[in-house]
């Protein structure tokens, strides 16, 4: 039974990506009716939404390399949409996670401040670089995505890391909280350490979010969990809340520059939100590890394709 579900998922992924790869001959753009690409984008993001949830990978990080590599849209519009996808997903998830005290405002405030300041810098730098030559962005996106694949493959997490006390920044900002562990019903108190190091890492998170329009859950979670020592559930939930802040600042830059095309952004946003809802219902029925490896493979291929596109292949 489990094997059959696994096979079905593999087939669905391949049947879904195959037409996308075929359509990637962007010279054939004009042979399609105008609604063809937005419709294809809707279905693509719908599946990104499903598999993103099943694999525990944010939609933005899957969307940008796939849409910029296999669709005819200019990378500026794809990045603008990527930010709104990440923003929309994090805004939708945050209220529930805040209500359960898994997402922490106290932890999100300083981390999001650093990330959003550098996301603004990244957004301007990305748009400037793209105006020079879009291949610079496409190529560096490919390299970044391949790097993210390795981070995803090798990053470890720790459910309840041990935290050394006495960190000045942590005490000054009163970072910590309590949540109820649903599996045991016990209350878990937590705090963080290495706050300075963690905040420094968010400089790079912000830059990458701004330059490429990527959601940064893949980076937020390891920083919050492995470097700062927040419990993994708190790290995942707070990462979403911090993203909603980080992406707001960068999203405004893209919006003001005219890099947000409603015909690309709205179908993508709706597709990913619907997909994520289905994905969260499928989650208990599938083996997330298997799906995660398949999605990471697709991400790797998208990274390679992005690199090839940068070199004119």
């Amino acid at each position: 039974m489990k094997q059959s579900i696994k096979v079905k998922f593999i087939l669905t992924i391949y049947s879904f990506f195959t037409p996308t790869l075929i359509f990637s001959a962007t010279d054939e753009v004009f042979t399609m009716p105008w609604w063809g690409w937005p419709a294809a984008l809707f279905f693509t993001t719908f599946f990104i939404g499903i598999f993103g949830v099943l694999a525990g990978i944010g939609g933005g990080v899957l969307f940008v390399p796939l849409a910029s590599s296999f669709f005819p849209f200019h990378i500026d519009f794809v990045r603008g949409t990527g930010l709104f996808i990440a923003l929309g997903s994090s805004l939708a998830a945050a209220p529930h996670l805040l209500g359960k005290n898994l997402a922490s405002i106290k932890l999100a405030l300083p981390t999001a401040l650093v990330a959003s300041a550098f996301a603004v810098v990244g957004a301007f730098f990305g748009l400037w670089l793209s105006a020079l030559n879009p291949a610079y962005i496409q190529g560096s996106l490919g390299v970044t995505i391949i790097g993210i694949v390795f981070i995803m493959l090798f990053a470890k997490d720790s459910e309840h890391p041990s935290v050394a006390g006495g960190n000045y920044l942590t005490q000054m900002l009163h970072i910590g909280g309590i949540y109820q562990e649903e599996t045991t019903g016990k209350e878990v108190s937590w705090t963080v350490h290495n706050t300075g190091k963690g905040l420094f890492c968010f400089v790079f998170v912000g830059l990458l979010a701004g330059i490429f329009g990527l959601g940064a859950g893949w980076a937020n979670v390891p920083i919050l969990n492995m470097i700062m020592g927040a419990p993994v559930k708190v790290a995942v939930a707070t990462s979403g809340l911090a993203l909603s802040v980080t992406d707001s600042t960068a999203a405004w830059i893209y919006l003001n520059k005219g890099a947000v095309l409603p015909m690309i952004t709205v179908p993508s946003l709706v597709g990913i939100m619907l997909g994520a809802r289905i994905g969260s219902k499928l989650l208990p029925k599938v083996k997330p590890a298997a799906v995660r490896y398949i999605v990471i493979s697709v991400l790797f291929l998208a990274g390679v394709r992005s690199l090839m596109k940068a070199f004119g292949y």
Partner: peptide, 11 residues
């Protein structure tokens, strides 16, 4: 119907 001529242009 003119959108495909625009969305692949640079910003």
């Amino acid at each position: 119907e003119d959108l495909p001529r625009f969305w692949s242009l640079s910003l």
